[in-house]
Design a protein around this nucleic acid. Structure first.
Lengths: 88, 88
DNA sequence: AACCTATTTAGAATTTTATCTAAATAGGTT
DNA sequence: AACCTATTTAGATAAAATTCTAAATAGGTT
């Protein structure tokens, strides 16, 4: 829930790719997993990191787990950058 | 020189604090170091990380090394966020 | 040259991350 | 209930990041 977790989450290309995939809407863990070479367990790990950083939210339907981009945290980090740039 | 390096560099609170210190102008490695409990060697390490991420630039004067914020990379990362948010 | 101050580099120890396989859990369907 | 599919958790291993102390380098001053 802190800025460190957010940046840490964004530091891995795999996780940024996941966010990119989610730009156009919800996807299940499996649908996300298919876009990578890594094991489903590893993708699950990356999804957990993104979830802890509040960059995605999850919802369940049947035996699927859907992930969705959480743009409010993106706003928060943009704010951080703006303040850095403006020397506030 | 990549987005990963930038985010990785920003993920540590010590390094974000260094950037904050540099918001109002150049500081030498020693002046920065004084603001932390850590050894000068460790701060030097963090400065190297920031330098590799292009978040700071360095210049030498006498036996001092001055560090300065590099705002152009900040712009670049803001762009990345904007595209994520706008779903481009 | 000898010395002093500032900073970085080297090497070691510790912690954190990332990945895999195998097993566990959860929800349907037959 | 038995089974199948989707996903996560556990445990192990390997790699990367963080920190320290001690030594090396760089630039002045005396």
């Amino acid at each position: 829930m802190g800025v460190s977790e957010t940046f840490k989450a964004l530091a891995a290309p795999e996780r940024r790719k996941i966010l990119d995939l989610l730009k156009h809407g919800k996807l299940s863990a499996g649908e996300i997993s298919k876009q990578f070479e890594m094991s489903a367990a590893t993708i699950s790990y990356h999804l957990t990191v993104l979830k802890k950083a509040d960059l995605v939210t999850e919802s369940k339907y049947k035996n699927y787990v859907y992930y969705e981009l959480n743009t409010s945290v993106v706003e928060e980090v943009m704010m951080w950058f703006t303040e850095l740039k403006e020397g506030k």
